[in-house]
Nucleic acid binder design. Structure first.
Lengths: 155, 155
DNA sequence: AAAGATTGACATCTCAATCTTC
DNA sequence: GAAGATTGAGATGTCAATCTTT
């Protein structure tokens, strides 16, 4: 039908989808199998943990940094609370808002999982990329993510 | 925890996830709203349509080209059969295998949807990329997808 | 009435089990 | 018994409605 119209650009799009499909599921399964942490938990924990100064983040802010929807985040936070990795904490300055705060157990879990995750990223993704390719991918896809962020209207 | 260990490579990984999350859902919703074709259907139809010589593909082969699991594909083919976009056809040379064959309606649906999809890709993705960035992303992520294909063992 | 967060209802997707044919 | 395909059961994800506070 129309595969021939923009071969080069479409290849970039197509291989973004293919690489994502090939790598993400595999890494997620491996990290969870070896550490007990689903990748969604890891992702959220990492953001909460790196929030300064006191390693807590409003759910709202967290949902902008994480790759799934706010309603999903609500449930993921529930699960992590049940597992003892974070606490919920009310925002004294705004009764509507809530913080997620990482616990000592949460930090320990993150410390255990980080090397596994980093090794998987290296082994299943970075290994195939030359240094300059890593740079291009980081900056170019970062630009895309910034421009097409969750709240950009469809126009 | 360990965010500082490999800043450049991790940025490539992180922004792959972020760009994917920011763009794919949006394009999928837009294409479906404007054409009635879910992106999964489009993807599968496109592969079946470009299979030579007679625009049919074994389910097995199709599942290797498409970005979701074989069991999901089984259901997607069901849905498309019900919608009249493909037919199932037994493989005369192997009683276990089945082909998906595109119908005239299927080709028409693809023709209608293609310009919408291509425009969305251009507008929400390619627009942010310089020509040389497109090339690097296409070749580098293509290499990743090929190397980490669905059947590569976890080792 | 708008913003932050959660919940109910549903869609999408995968794993493991199953059925059939090789 | 292994390969191709489908199915059952359940995990994961989203949208729209709701509740509370602003």
């Amino acid at each position: 039908v129309a595969q021939v119209r923009e071969p080069e650009g479409i290849g970039a799009w197509r291989n973004l989808l293919r690489a994502h499909a090939a790598v993400v599921g595999r890494i997620a399964r491996d990290v969870e199998a070896r550490t007990g942490l689903p990748l969604t938990w890891y992702d959220a924990l990492l953001e909460v943990n790196s929030a300064l100064p006191d390693r807590k983040l409003r759910i709202q802010d967290l949902s902008e940094r994480v790759v799934f929807s706010r309603s999903r985040l609500s449930r993921v936070v529930d699960e992590m609370v049940r597992a003892g990795l974070v606490r919920r904490e009310p925002d004294p300055s705004d009764g509507r808002a809530a913080f997620a705060v990482i616990t000592a157990d949460g930090r320990a879990a993150l410390r255990r999982a980080a090397p596994v995750y980093l090794r998987d990223i290296e082994e299943h993704f970075l290994r195939h990329l030359a240094p300059d390719e890593r740079t291009v991918i980081a900056t170019a896809l970062g630009r895309v993510a910034a421009a097409e962020g969750v709240d950009t209207p469809v126009r």
